[in-house]
Write a protein that binds this DNA or RNA. Structure first.
Lengths: 125, 125
DNA sequence: CTATAATTTCGACAAGGTTCGAATTAGAAG
DNA sequence: CTTCTAATTCGAACCTTGTCGAAATTATAG
């Protein structure tokens, strides 16, 4: 699968993405480009122990269990989470490398100086 | 509008996203969750002068001009790029704050390196 | 003022995604 | 073995989206 540590791409504003890299990243981004999956990912990652049971996740939404299961599958297929069955329940946890990959893609090139509040540079040309 | 400087959300694995924040972020993520728009964004951001003409962008794809225009509109509506008409051509440039917002969302929180603790801190604001 | 070129808007269609209800698998408990 | 609960898979509606061709808009050139 080669999804663990892929130094895939430079920050998006540094050099043009190749067609294959763009297609690859789009798959992962499509997975997170949904309110439900975004919240699922957030709930899993911020849960105690770094993992969350499906039962907890399902209760937090006004959606049926099959729908939540579908969203979890999308996240898992995209390589963002991993699921493990322990007894009756299934626990999911985030795959940090995948999230880091997205973070690197949108890493700021012109970073606002730390310690200094609100100093967004833009414009002068 | 209020899309320029929104210090919206904590990293995705730190605390559960609210329903509104998730919906808001999903709009922006949907905009970049497409191979064409990903490449467009990358080409615009990495272009000399930080801006690119639509004519240059259109030639790089096997798509019609209306389709490229549609994708640019999606990116612009999501607050990721801004367009300006100078004479015959229209030039687009990235809105850095929007990209930074996504970068902050996927900022690494728990790195899988057990040896060195606490060496990656996230940015203030 | 007319012609030409660049870009966007409009209308339409095919493809894909979200959601549900019903059926299915897997493990635990009686 | 049977039954109950947790989670997934399946099949079908409904909505959204990517794409194109044609027409409209905007600005330069003659």
């Amino acid at each position: 699968m080669a999804a663990t540590t892929t130094p895939c791409c430079a920050p998006i504003a540094r050099e043009p993405l190749s067609e294959t890299d763009a297609a690859d990243l789009a798959v992962m981004l499509k997975a997170v480009a949904d309110p439900v999956r975004l919240r699922l990912l957030s709930m899993i990652g911020s849960h105690a122990g770094g993992e969350a049971c499906v039962c907890d996740l399902t209760d937090a939404f006004d959606l049926t269990a099959p729908t939540i299961s579908h969203h979890l599958k999308v996240l898992r297929t995209a390589g963002l989470i991993d699921g493990e069955r322990r007894g009756t329940w299934v626990y999911y946890r985030i795959i940090p490398e995948a999230v880091n990959k997205l973070g690197a893609l949108f890493a700021p090139l012109t970073e606002p100086s730390p310690g200094r509040p609100g100093d967004l540079e833009l414009l002068p040309v």
